[in-house]
């Protein structure tokens, strides 16, 4: 899979319609300049050689240099990564802390079709929230807190408080989506026969909900909601651009607009690896929590 990722990022430049070097330099460039750039980019070699060369560079953490600033791409990534990580982790924390308890509480409260009005309200709220993409949430939040109330900063990352709005913007939709999933899974688990067995043993609520329900809920929610966590990465990229947050997202968009291919390749490769890491973590977690998957993996 990582190889596929490598190949895909490699192919960015080769798949560009027309001559990449010409596109970079513009239509006024002289043929000699274009040819020089082609040689520098190694575009004249056979494809397999190019790929081999690219791969070996990647493994040596040599991701080339930005066409625009001539800075080593690896360095750019190293500079920007902490800010992106900061934002993504803040969003992740918000999602976990808010959505899971909310979902479980809502599930317990509406089990067996109790409180139908609460169920309706919850459904309506999550539908609305779920339709709110990160950049819209960012817009509304920015307006309300920064423009209207002038409470929080809306650009840059200098102020320690400036992480609040972006993190919120990224996490609103995932929180709502995950809370909804968790509620449905809680209802499913509570309707299972083994919960009735646990009740028949007159176990205290702590054990009933903590030991018997929680793990089953998390397992099924993770299976279904795994995409929410990788989605956080996408949201981070977009929201960075709204709030001028100096992370990988802003540099990626700038690179695409400027056709700065080495940067595009490097950042995409890196983000791709991050996605793979997240997925693998989720799979491992599932293996730990659910003995049935662990046995199957063996």
């Amino acid at each position: 899979m990582l190889i596929a990722l490598l190949f895909a990022t490699f192919m960015i430049v080769r798949l560009v319609p027309g001559d990449p070097a010409r596109r970079i330099l513009g239509s006024e460039a002289s043929p000699e300049d274009v040819q020089a750039l082609r040689t520098e980019m190694g575009l004249d070699m056979p494809i397999l050689n190019q790929f081999a060369s690219y791969s070996s560079h990647v493994f040596r953490i040599d991701l080339g240099h930005s066409f625009i600033t001539n800075q080593p791409v690896a360095q750019i990534i190293a500079e920007r990564l902490p800010r992106t990580a900061e934002l993504a982790l803040a969003a992740l924390l918000l999602v976990l802390i808010l959505s899971i308890p909310m979902g479980i509480a809502a599930g317990v409260a509406t089990r067996e079709r109790r409180r139908p009005r609460l169920e309706l309200a919850f459904g309506a709220l999550t539908s609305v929230g779920g339709a709110l993409p990160e950049y819209l949430a960012a817009t509304f939040l920015a307006f309300f807190f920064a423009v209207f109330l002038r409470l929080l900063p809306v650009a840059g990352a200098d102020n320690p408080l400036s992480v609040v709005l972006p993190a919120l913007a990224i996490s609103i939709r995932p929180i709502v989506v995950l809370a909804r999933i968790v509620r449905v899974e809680t209802l499913n688990v509570l309707a299972q026969d083994f919960i009735r067995t646990a009740r028949s043993k007159r176990l205290p609520a702590v054990l009933l909900y903590g030991r018997h329900t929680l793990r089953n809920v998390i397992t099924s929610a993770l299976t279904i909601g795994g995409l929410v966590f990788t989605g956080l990465l996408g949201g981070t990229v977009v929201v960075e651009n709204v709030f001028a947050w100096p992370g990988l997202g802003t540099v990626l968009v700038q690179a695409v607009l400027a056709r700065d291919y080495p940067v595009i390749q490097g950042v995409t490769l890196f983000l791709g690896i991050a996605v793979v890491v997240v997925n693998t973590t989720i799979d491992l977690l599932l293996g730990v929590l659910d003995p049935r998957t662990a046995v199957r993996a063996q």
């Binding site: 798949l15 560009v16 319609p17 795994g226 690179a255 695409v256 983000l271 996605v275 997925n279």
Partner: peptide, 21 residues
Amino acid sequence: EVVLSFPPILVAIFFTAIVGV
């Protein structure tokens, strides 16, 4: 399953990098 795990927005940005804006 694997391709699905990549956030759509990133995939979209990736493709605009190839074919232009």
